[in-house]
Simulated assay, not measured.
Amino acid sequence: MNLIEIYYDLRADLEIVEKRLLKEVQSNEKVLQKASAHLLKAGGKRIRPVFVLLAAKFGEYDLERLSRVAVALELIHMATLVHDDVIDDADKRRGSPTVKSAWGNRIAMYTGDFILARALQILADVPDLRSHQILADSIVQMCEGEIEQVRDFYRFDQHLRTYLRRIKRKTALLLSVSCTLGALAANCKETVVQALGKYAYNLGMAFQITDDILDMTATEKKLGKPVGSDLRQGNITLPVLYACRVPETANTLRRLIHRDMTDQEVASAISRIRSVGAIEQSQALADRYLARALKHLDALPNLEWKEKLRQIAIFISKREY
């Protein structure tokens, strides 16, 4: 089963969200509009809007209200991608040129700021103070996570806790917020709000670990960007940390991973990481987070949408792209 099949019952609502996304990146400044639309049209899994809509199925489902939340959260995610590509000096995302690559760093940074501002404009119409507080706190932590990532480039001796805190802030928080805000917008019971938030948090952790594994196991065609991008940027991910527990391998990786890595050095580093079982160890931790995510679904009412959440969890944790 693929995501299109899983999303099938939400297709009409997701089409409305997609149209609203295109509408919200309109601007009198044509460069901003073109750059924003360029990223939007490159596609994506739209997991955050889907989580908003699915969470709301456990309460009072009002698409007009929910589409505002769904669009705003996807725009926030898009803004982080634009900024990430500047920081990472990335030329491709989802197989297309990045905003940074097509328009340069300056336009890319302003585009990210513009998209974020649009998201906040949309959320201004949401009257729930708690939702605003949750989102504001999360954005602060997301920014802190990005700074931590830059600080820890090429830092091979970082603790596992440092990595887990970073991916929590980088990925898991916004997924958790998507379920939480969707549930709050639908006036769900507090037990449901909490269960959905914890489900998405743990799934977000599994999602990012899976991303870090795929950076070393997938093909460029499937990834839409070069294999080993994290290594080239000095981003020390979970497979590297596990591999560095073997002293001889740690020494080899310190020699191979540097700012001007050749394709051969990337291939050699990945081969060494895989040879010591670091991919399997990383997958085992991703599976533990997946199991926790699925466990939190037990607290939800037995509606058909609960099965959709289970299917999404299994898909995005076992995906190949």
Score class of each variant (00 low, 15 high):
residue 37 A to E: 15
residue 104 G to L: 00
residue 9 D to E: 14
residue 178 S to M: 10
residue 59 G to Q: 14
residue 169 R to N: 15
residue 25 V to W: 03
residue 208 Q to P: 11
residue 285 L to H: 04
residue 309 L to K: 04
residue 27 S to N: 07
residue 155 R to E: 11
residue 238 L to N: 09
residue 263 D to R: 09
residue 190 E to H: 05
residue 115 I to C: 04
residue 81 L to M: 02
residue 43 G to K: 01
residue 163 Y to G: 10
residue 109 M to E: 00
residue 200 A to L: 13
residue 124 A to S: 14
residue 123 L to F: 10
residue 86 V to E: 11
residue 169 R to A: 13
residue 234 G to Y: 09
residue 130 R to V: 14
residue 81 L to H: 06
residue 203 L to H: 08
residue 39 L to V: 04
residue 237 T to V: 06
residue 291 A to Q: 15
residue 276 V to I: 02
residue 260 D to R: 09
residue 311 Q to G: 05
residue 110 Y to H: 09
residue 275 S to P: 13
residue 104 G to N: 00
residue 124 A to I: 01
residue 32 L to P: 12
residue 120 L to R: 04
residue 157 D to P: 04
residue 287 D to A: 15
residue 129 L to N: 11
residue 238 L to Q: 11
residue 62 D to W: 01
residue 191 T to E: 15
residue 155 R to L: 07
residue 307 E to Q: 14
residue 251 N to P: 09
residue 221 K to G: 00
residue 97 P to L: 06
residue 50 V to W: 12
residue 259 R to I: 03
residue 127 P to R: 10
residue 24 E to T: 04
residue 183 A to F: 10
residue 284 A to V: 00
residue 258 H to D: 13
residue 263 D to F: 02
residue 20 R to N: 13
residue 117 A to F: 07
residue 162 T to I: 02
residue 36 S to W: 07
residue 69 V to N: 09
residue 134 I to A: 12
residue 224 G to K: 03
residue 106 R to M: 05
residue 85 D to C: 04
residue 140 V to N: 00
residue 238 L to C: 14
residue 228 G to T: 03
residue 206 A to R: 05
residue 234 G to I: 07
residue 70 A to I: 06
residue 189 K to N: 15
residue 226 P to A: 07
residue 242 Y to N: 13
residue 77 H to L: 11
residue 28 N to A: 12
residue 198 K to Y: 10
residue 139 I to Y: 05
residue 259 R to V: 07
residue 10 L to C: 04
residue 321 Y to F: 12
residue 177 V to G: 07
residue 262 T to E: 08
residue 246 V to Q: 13
residue 92 K to Q: 12
residue 3 L to R: 02
residue 140 V to A: 09
residue 16 I to N: 13
residue 265 E to M: 07
residue 301 P to D: 14
residue 266 V to M: 05
residue 196 L to V: 02
residue 238 L to K: 06
residue 37 A to T: 14
residue 14 L to T: 02
residue 113 D to K: 01
residue 88 D to M: 01
residue 121 Q to A: 08
residue 190 E to D: 15
residue 156 F to K: 05
residue 141 Q to W: 09
residue 221 K to P: 00
residue 40 L to A: 09
residue 117 A to E: 06
residue 124 A to W: 08
residue 286 A to D: 02
residue 301 P to T: 01
residue 314 I to W: 00
residue 204 G to A: 11
residue 23 K to N: 15
residue 155 R to I: 04
residue 227 V to F: 02
residue 176 S to K: 10
residue 11 R to L: 01
residue 266 V to A: 01
residue 284 A to R: 13
residue 21 L to V: 00
residue 232 R to A: 15
residue 302 N to P: 05
residue 290 L to S: 08
residue 81 L to G: 04
residue 199 Y to I: 04
residue 85 D to E: 11
residue 308 K to P: 08
residue 304 E to Q: 12
residue 122 I to H: 11
residue 118 R to W: 02
residue 1 M to D: 13
residue 26 Q to M: 12
residue 35 A to H: 09
residue 27 S to K: 00
residue 202 N to W: 03
residue 218 A to S: 12
residue 187 N to M: 12
residue 260 D to G: 06
residue 78 M to W: 08
residue 221 K to A: 09
residue 189 K to M: 14
residue 191 T to P: 07
residue 91 D to H: 01
residue 251 N to Y: 10
residue 23 K to P: 00
residue 131 S to K: 03
residue 143 C to I: 11
residue 137 D to S: 11
residue 308 K to V: 12
residue 207 F to H: 05
residue 47 I to A: 10
residue 257 I to C: 12
residue 210 T to H: 10
residue 106 R to A: 10
residue 258 H to K: 13
